[in-house]
Design a protein around this nucleic acid. Structure first.
Lengths: 361, 361
DNA sequence: TTGAAAGCGCTAACAA
DNA sequence: TTGTTAGCGCTTTCAA
């Protein structure tokens, strides 16, 4: 490098501070602060001059500095295990939107289903997030207790942790899975298969229990079972395993859509079965792809927007100190009837939105 | 509520500060600070006592406070337009992972393709993020200039903004689209259709130019054209429009996979066409779903991990002050050959990973 | 309504 | 290696 770059006046200039603005406007720092604080008492005259000076200097209040005094960072930590299925991206998008609407931003953590995520969350807490939302990730009771002590509300999403008594928002796993069983039974199926998600997750366990209990009530045989670990490849393998059995199942319930879609793919491409005809497949979530013409997946819906709204409500309550007694918030869904599973003779009704859902007799 | 909840000693206790730790350990605040600062000089003895005291008090350094002195928040703002296609969730996941590996966290912004996102980004800058990554979102040159002045590096991802001279990382749009054209030409097609994304986006424009220029070189007729706006529904409509023409195209190039998948769905379910036989469809991105048995989408790949690695590299350089001359970083991909488009007689080779790709003669 | 002053929790010069 | 001191940019009493 032969020549020294000229130091243009604009280069490297540090962002304007409240002090700078105050000086230019000929007022005190406090006046500047008040101008940028909702509902503080400033005369219209000074407010005017401050705003003008701020604009001239392109002043932006430093939220980090503010948080030091207010103890509010206006950030919410969101931990999610993966973004490679269809459900969680929608959850994250909704969280970002709905938290954004009340002035909060999402600090994202992707845990990769790591069970040992305490270190990650520990780090997250250094950022002094105002709340922690755990979407399908859990934390140790020790850390949960620390959060409680530290005044950081923790809310679980689509996953519950009975031991911790941590507030949680989830779909109606038991009911949804039971509906799936009842629906398949009503369609005349008698030989069932079940594909589990992650064995340890409350979500998978509850859906399994709901499914099996309902089958038992009907007097059905125990379903065949395989584990798909909530992954696409895992579900493909699980489907192969079930469909290769000497007497394969006539109907398959998968604990989420991501796996149900994998099951459809395998059934079609490897076993030449048409879902809805030779094999019935039911999922859980009602992700966008489930409605694509090529899948037409019958599935129990999790209304993400509602679930997120409830979650954000819990965040607000917790931040406002409104202690809310109810710990687990269960959000009802519907069994959306499409073409991937045989239709029962009765019980299918059409909603005003034009969707078909199934109601028990 | 009849009884007042007992104030347990642990409840509402504010998190421990460096001061608290110092007092308990019998050292100064600086000693505590140094203990938690990489490569600071502390004797093993004091370090020991500090760590112990910190553990006892469950001390966690407050990164907000630290950032006030260091001017480093260890947060990177990531603005992404949507999470409802297949590409961006993967990008966000990679960004989170790779930034996480160098100690940075993602502060997420979802812009919903809002062209007027300056207010959003303006707000983001209040958080004093150390860098800003714009994935398929652009910002005004005014704000870009402000960022530069404020010392916040801005990097565009999968989207370029020639006017701003903002550093950008993108796939090889021109080359990829030309490859798609050459591939379809080599397969013997002569009547082409093109589905655009968002008209204003550099991504869509470059892919359109690359595709059309290549066709022109072959002496082909101008392709029929429709706009899918990068959305699934938009692409379905666009496909219907093209396939309903009196002389519909034999081959369709879509500017991303999300739209190509929509095209496959419509071609199959509404026109009874089998992609790869009666109609060839080529996409761009190579998202995970493209490889599903039911789609087998031929597409030009964008190696997300590589692209993100380059992006993170730019962030590091910018933060280290290593000014990097090259402004647009173009990452090469491959034309992944699957079954959604007719195969040319020559040029298909198998990679060591077992994937088929196409090389021009 | 306004400004002065104290302080949020931390780091970084500077002496010791 | 350590402690003291002076801030980082902001909010918030407290008097005026």
């Amino acid at each position: 490098m032969e020549s020294v770059a000229p130091r243009t006046s604009s280069a490297r200039s540090r962002p304007a501070t409240a002090e700078d603005v105050a000086r230019l406007a000929g007022v005190s720092r406090s006046a500047v602060s008040r101008t940028f604080t909702e509902g503080a008492s400033v005369s219209e005259a000074t407010r005017q001059r401050v705003v003008e000076a701020a604009r001239a200097l392109k002043y932006r209040p430093n939220l980090m500095a503010r948080s030091l005094m207010t103890n509010r960072s206006f950030m919410v930590g969101v931990a999610v295990s993966h973004l490679d299925n269809q459900f969680y991206p929608e959850v994250v998008e909704q969280l970002s939107d709905q938290l954004g609407a009340i002035g909060y931003r999402v600090l994202l953590f992707i845990t990769h289903g790591n069970t040992e995520l305490d270190p990650m969350l520990d780090e997250l807490l250094r950022y002094r997030v105002d709340a922690l939302i755990l979407a399908s990730s859990s934390l140790s009771s020790a850390l949960a207790e620390e959060c409680r002590q530290g005044g950081v509300p923790v809310i679980m999403f689509n996953n519950t942790d009975l031991a911790n008594r941590t507030p949680a928002v989830a779909g109606d796993n038991t009911h949804g899975a039971a509906m799936a069983a009842d629906f398949l039974w009503a369609a005349g199926h008698r030989r069932f298969g079940f594909i589990a998600g992650i064995e340890e997750s409350s979500t998978s366990r509850e859906r399994e229990a709901g499914f099996k209990d309902a089958l038992r009530r009907h007097g059905a045989d125990r379903p065949m079972r395989a584990c798909g670990h909530f992954t696409f490849d895992g579900a493909m393998a699980a489907t192969r395993q079930l469909l290769s059995a000497p007497t394969p199942p006539e109907a398959l319930f998968c604990t989420n859509d991501h796996m149900a879609l994998a099951a459809i793919e395998v059934a079609r491409s490897e076993f030449g079965l048409t879902p809805g005809r030779e094999l019935s497949i039911v999922g859980f979530d009602d992700v966008a792809i489930a409605a694509w013409p090529g899948f037409q997946l019958t599935t129990y819906s999790q209304p993400v927007a509602h679930m997120v709204a409830r979650t954000v409500g819990l965040v607000k309550d917790a931040l406002a100190g409104t202690k809310d007694g109810q710990c687990h918030h269960i959000i009802q869904g519907d069994l959306i009837v499409r073409a991937s599973a045989r239709r029962p003779a009765t019980g299918i009704v059409r909603t005003p939105e034009g969707q078909e859902i199934w109601r028990r007799a």
